[in-house]
C-alpha cells in the first residue's frame, strides 16, 4: 500500500564561526576607465560568491556588472577572507567588499562634488554616471576618476568586516555567538510504500529567510541543491564503517540522488533584512540542507504512523519498523 505523509522542518543557523572572530578583508580599485578590480580571499567553490561580490561592488560603485572583475583566493594577492564555510561569505566578505567599495567611492564623490560644485551629500554614483539627488548630471564616473588620477588621488578602497559576537561562558554557554541568524521552514510530502519500505519524496517546499537575496537565482540553486543533498541524507546515504574500515568507498556502493530521484521543489525566498548585512543579506548555503531530513522524517512518520529514530530511513529499516509495529499491535490485541 502507498501512503502519503507531510512533514515540517524548521531550522535556524548562526551565520559565521561560533563565538569566534572570523573577519574578512577586501580591496577595491576603481580604475580610470570606470572598471573595477575587487580583490578578496573568498574561495568560490561553486556556490557563486564571486558573482555575489561582483554584484555588491557594482551596486556600491554605480557601474554595470560587466565592469567588475573579481580576483579571488590567491594568498599572494588577496587579503584573508576566512574560510568558505559557516554560510558566512555573502554576509562577511560581502560586507568587506561593500566597505572597500564605499572607500573608493568616497574619493570619486568628493572629486565630483568639487568639479560640479555640489554638496557631496547629494552626490551619488549610478549607471556609470554622477548623479545629483535623483537626476543624472551627465558627467561620467570615469572622467571624474581620471581627474582624481591627474591630481594624484587614487580611487582605492580597503575594507574589512568581523561580525559582532561574544565568547560563550565555558560553563553555561551564555553569550552571543553569532551576529545574525538565517531561518527556514521546509515542508516535505512523501509517498511511503508499506510493502517495500521505499520512500519517495514527491514535493518539497523550502522557504528561506536570507535577509536579502543578492542573486535570487543563485539562492534558489542553493536551496534546491541543499534539499536534494538533504534528501540523500534522510533516505539514502551512509558511509558504512566496520572495524574502522570504510566498506563502500566508491560511487557504485555509496549512492547519492540522481536526476530520476528528485521531487518537485518549490523554493520560496523570504527577505527579512539584516541591518548589519550587505544590502540586508545573510546566508543560505548550509540552511538549504539543514531542515530537509527533519521534514522528510516527519513526513514519513505522518505517512506510516510509525516514527524512526535512526538516519538514514532505508527501506530495510522502514519494513522492519512496520513489522515490529504490526507484531506489537497483534500482541496488544491478544493480550
Amino acid at each position: 500500500m502507498k501512503k502519503h505523509g507531510y512533514g515540517i522542518g524548521n531550522m535556524w543557523y548562526g551565520v559565521g564561526n561560533t563565538a569566534a572572530p572570523n573577519p574578512s578583508g577586501a580591496f577595491v580599485d576603481f580604475l580610470d576607465d570606470g572598471t573595477v578590480i575587487v580583490l578578496s580571499g573568498c574561495a568560490d567553490i561553486g556556490q557563486g560568491s564571486s558573482t555575489v561580490l561582483a554584484q555588491i561592488a557594482a551596486e556600491t560603485l554605480g557601474v554595470g556588472l560587466e565592469n567588475v572583475a573579481v580576483i579571488a583566493a590567491d594568498t599572494e594577492v588577496t587579503p584573508d577572507a576566512g574560510a568558505t564555510s559557516a554560510s558566512r561569505q555573502t554576509y562577511i566578505s560581502g560586507n568587506a567588499v561593500r566597505f572597500a567599495a564605499e572607500k573608493a567611492r568616497e574619493q570619486v564623490i568628493a572629486q565630483a562634488a568639487e568639479r560640479l560644485n555640489l554638496p557631496a551629500d547629494n552626490v551619488s554614483l549610478k549607471d556609470g554616471q554622477i548623479w545629483h539627488q535623483d537626476e543624472p548630471t551627465g558627467t561620467k564616473i570615469q572622467d571624474v576618476i581620471a581627474q582624481c588620477r591627474s591630481k594624484g588621488i587614487l580611487t582605492l578602497g580597503q575594507g574589512w568586516f568581523n561580525p559582532v559576537t561574544t565568547k560563550l561562558d565555558p560553563l553555561t554557554g551564555q553569550g552571543a555567538p553569532y551576529a545574525t541568524y538565517a531561518f527556514a521552514t521546509q515542508v516535505a510530502e512523501v509517498e511511503a510504500d508499506t510493502e517495500t519500505g521505499v520512500i519517495e519524496v514527491k514535493r518539497i517546499v523550502a522557504a528561506h529567510d536570507v535577509g536579502r537575496a543578492i542573486n535570487p537565482q543563485n539562492v534558489e540553486g542553493q536551496i534546491e541543491g541543499g534539499c536534494i543533498m538533504g534528501m540523500g541524507y534522510a533516505l539514502l546515504e551512509e558511509v558504512a564503517v566496520n572495524q574502522g574500515r570504510i566498506e563502500n568507498p566508491a560511487l557504485s556502493t555509496y549512492l547519492i540522488p540522481t536526476a530520476l530521484d528528485i521531487p518537485e521543489m518549490f523554493p520560496v525566498i523570504v527577505e527579512d533584512e539584516e541591518p548589519s548585512g550587505p544590502y540586508g543579506a545573510k546566508g543560505v548555503g548550509e540552511p538549504a540542507l539543514v531542515p530537509t531530513a527533519a521534514a522528510i522524517a516527519n513526513a514519513v512518520a505522518d505517512a506510516l504512523g510509525i516514527r524512526l529514530y535512526d538516519l538514514p530511513l532505508t527501506p530495510e529499516k522502514i519494513v522492519a519498523a512496520i513489522r515490529a509495529a504490526a507484531e506489537e499491535s497483534e500482541l496488544g490485541l491478544n493480550g
Binding site: E220, G221, E224, G225, I228, M229, T258, A259, L260
Partner: peptide, 20 residues
C-alpha cells in the same frame, strides 16, 4: 525523458532541477 537522459550524470550542487 530529460531526467532519464541525464540520470547517469551526477551533480552534487544543483539538485538537478535547473539542469532539467
Amino acid at each position: 525523458e530529460i531526467a532519464r537522459a541525464i540520470s547517469g550524470n551526477l551533480c552534487r550542487c544543483t539538485g538537478y532541477a535547473k539542469i532539467v
